[in-house]
Amino acid sequence: MKARSVITIGLGLLLFVACKQQEQQQVEGENYPLLTLKPENRQLSVKYSAVIEGKQDVEVRPQVSGTITQVCVEEGAHVQKGQVLFVIDQVPYEAALQKAEAAVATAEANEATAKQTLEGKQLLYEDRVISDFELRTAQNSYKSAKAALLQAQAEKRDAENNLSYTLVKSPVDGFAGMTSYRIGALVSASMTDPLIRVSDNSDMYVYFSLTEKQVLSLTAQYGSLDKALESFPEVSLELNDGTVYEQKGKVDVISGIIDKTTGTVSMRAVFGNEGKRLMSGGSANVIVPYDREECIVIPQGGTYEIQNRIFAYKVVDGKAVSTPIRVFEVNDGKEYIVEDGLKAGDVIVSEGAGLLKDGTVVSGTKTEEN
C-alpha cells in the first residue's frame, strides 16, 4: 500500500510540474520571428513569348529559268552582299544578248537612213520639188525608225539583265542557310521554294506582343506611343534552354495596329549578336522589367494556403490572428506583394505560419523588412 501511495504522489507531482510549465509557456508565448511591415520598392518583371529573326532574313530566288551549272556557296558560310552563290546556264542568255545587239545595230542603221532621207526631202520640199505628202511620209518613216531603235535598245537591256541574273548573288551580308539545289537542277523564276536563305545576324529582331489594354495603359502613362517607346526600359531575353541572354535589348518599334484576330499589338526589340548565339527562327521569352513603389512585401514563409486562399498571421495583443490576404507573387519565388489584407505598421509572423493556430500567444524579436 505504501508503494502504491508513493507512485500516486509522484505522478501527481509530475502532472503538476507539467501543467505549471505549460501555463508559463502560454503566458510567455511561443517564440516566432516577427516582422513589422513598411512600404517598400520592388522591381518586377513579366515575360512574353517571342520569335527571333535575323535583321535581314532573305529568301534568294532565281529570276530566270535554266539549269544550275555552278554552286559557289557553302552551306552555313558567311557571305557578303553581291557574292555569287549560284550560276545558271548562261549559253542561251548570251545568245539572246548577241541577237539583241544585232537588232540594235540594224535599227541604228535604219534610223540613220531614215534621218538622211528626211533631210533630203526637206531640201526638196523647200525647193517645191515634192509635195507635203511626201515630206510627211519621210517624217513618219524617221519616227518609226527611231521607235524601232528604242525598242531594240530596250530588248538589249532586257537581254543584258537576263544574262546578269544567271549569276545569283547574295542581296545582303550574312550567313547562308541550307540548300537542296545542286549542279544540274532545273530552276525557274516561278518556283515556290528559294534556292537558299541568307540571314544577316549581326543584330537580331525579337518580336512579341502586348494586349490592347497594356498598350493603352502605356499611352495614357506617357502621353503617346512615341514617348512610351522612348521611355521603355531595356529588356532581357530568356532563351529556349532557360538561360538568360547576356546582352540587353532595346524595344525600337511599337506597331500602331491591333491584330483583329488576337487583339494584341506587335512589338520589336533589337539585340546585339556578336557571339552569334542567337539564331534566326528561334523562340524565346522577352522579360520586361517594371517597378512597384510603396508596396507591402512579406516572405512566403509567413503565409499558408487553404482552398486556394492565402492567409498570414497578424499579431494582435500578443496573439496570432489568422488574416486572409490578396497577393501578387514576386518573380523570385520568395516573396509576396500584398494587395489587400495588411498595411504598413502591422506585425506578422514571418516564418513558420503553417505550424501556428489561430489565437496562439506568440513572442519574438520584431524586425523590419529591408
Score class of each variant (00 low, 15 high):
Glu94Pro: 01
Val129Leu: 11
Gln151Val: 13
Pro171Ala: 08
Ala107Asn: 06
Thr137Trp: 02
Asp158Phe: 10
Leu124Trp: 08
Ser131Val: 05
Ala152Gly: 04
Leu123Phe: 11
Met178Val: 05
Ala152His: 02
Glu94His: 00
Ala147Arg: 00
Glu111Ser: 15
Glu134Val: 12
Leu167Gly: 00
Val168Cys: 03
Ile130His: 03
Gly120Thr: 15
Ala152Asp: 04
Asp132Tyr: 07
Leu118Gln: 15
Leu135Ile: 06
Arg136Glu: 10
Lys146Val: 12
Glu119Trp: 10
Pro171Leu: 06
Tyr125Leu: 08
Asn162Ile: 03
Arg136Ser: 05
Ala138Leu: 10
Glu160Pro: 04
Phe175Asp: 05
Phe175Arg: 09
Ala148Gln: 12
Ser144His: 06
Glu111Phe: 14
Gln116His: 14
Ser131His: 05
Lys143Glu: 09
Glu108Asn: 12
Tyr165Asn: 11
Glu94Asp: 05
Thr106Asp: 14
Thr137Ala: 14
Lys146Met: 07
Val172Ser: 00
Asn162Gly: 03
Gln122Pro: 00
Leu167Ile: 02
Lys169Ile: 12
Leu124Cys: 05
Glu160Lys: 09
Ser141Val: 06
Tyr125Asn: 11
Lys115Glu: 14
Glu94Phe: 02
Glu111His: 11
Ser144Ile: 14
Lys169Pro: 03
Gln98His: 04
Thr179Val: 02
Val172Phe: 11
Glu134Pro: 01
Ala138Val: 08
Lys121Met: 14
Glu94Cys: 01
Ala109Ser: 13
Leu163Ala: 01
Gly174Ala: 09
Leu167Arg: 15
Lys121Trp: 07
Ala154Arg: 00
Gln98Glu: 02
Ala107Gly: 09
Gln151Ile: 12
Gly174Trp: 07
Glu101Asp: 07
Ala159His: 01
Ala100Pro: 07
Ala103Ser: 14
Thr137Lys: 13
Ala107Val: 12
Leu149Gly: 04
Ala148Lys: 04
Thr166Tyr: 11
Ala103Met: 13
Ala154Cys: 04
Lys115Pro: 03
